[in-house]
């Protein structure tokens, strides 16, 4: 049984149809890169998976939870699905340590000490052990994004969603974040990432999905799809991003 099963979803913002009949399934341990032009619907699809956006039609099942059901337990869903955003979205009033501890305390109901242990472990894993007491505004963008990844991973999700997490970073900071992503990938985490980093997609992802005008236009093994695109749209997209 696939971990994520998306069937025929439709999503409209006002009169604009952003997702038109999208279906997709994702197996446990799979790493999928979603690419496409801005406005192609890739971020929206990601946000539908953890119900930050609700669909108008279709069905999404994640790890046995029907996300699209009206009475879906979204908080339970979101404990299993971690998400990292383009703009990091760390809590500015909390230290790095407290940022990671917050959901452990409130959602997983861990004690202060247990939560702190996990937080320190996760922050060390992304290489920021010396920044535990720092506030987000004292960190670089890349460091903030690494903390955001640690914050999500600390919840021990079964699926991680990454929404253009390097797009807001200065070029010299992209590498450190991608290295963290690679190490997460090596641990066998199921991951879905919307990205513009084609090399990263080619080398780390198992599979690439190309979205175009609200539909999945191509879907295949990463290297093959990127090196030998089947459609003219993907070809023109790739030549635009690679040059």
């Amino acid at each position: 049984m696939p971990l994520v099963e998306i069937s025929e979803i439709h999503k409209r913002f006002g009169t604009v149809e952003v997702l038109k009949d999208v279906s997709l399934s994702l197996d446990k341990g799979e790493i999928v890169a979603v690419i496409g032009r801005s406005g192609s619907g890739k971020s929206t699809m990601l946000r539908c998976i953890n119900a930050l956006e609700r669909v108008q039609a279709g069905r999404i099942v994640v790890d046995g939870i029907d996300v699209t059901a009206p009475d879906a337990d979204l908080n339970r869903l979101r404990q299993r699905v971690g998400m990292v955003f383009q703009s990091y979205n760390l809590f500015p009033h909390l230290t790095v340590e407290r940022n990671v501890m917050l959901a452990l305390r409130l959602v997983r109901k861990l004690g202060e000490d247990a939560a702190r242990d996990i937080a320190r472990q996760m922050v060390a894993k992304v290489g920021l052990a010396e920044k535990l007491a720092a506030y987000p505004d004292e960190l670089s963008g890349g460091q903030q994004q690494r903390v955001a990844i640690a914050r999500s991973l600390a919840m021990q999700p079964t699926l991680m969603l990454f929404d253009e997490i390097t797009s807001a970073l200065d070029p010299e900071l992209v590498g450190e974040v991608l290295r963290v992503l690679e190490s997460v990938a090596q641990e066998g985490m199921t991951m879905m990432l919307v990205t513009h980093e084609m090399n990263f997609a080619k080398n780390v992802a198992d599979r690439v999905i190309f979205m175009h005008e609200g539909r999945i236009h191509e879907d295949g093994p990463a290297r093959e799809t990127l090196l030998e695109p089947r459609t003219a749209e993907l070809r023109s997209f790739l030549s635009a991003v690679l040059h």
């Binding site: 930050l52 869903l77 979101r78 699905v81 979205n89 409130l106 959602v107 919840m155």
Partner: peptide
Amino acid sequence: QWEAGAALGL
């Protein structure tokens, strides 16, 4: 900030 909290299951 609301979204980040929601995504963590708060």
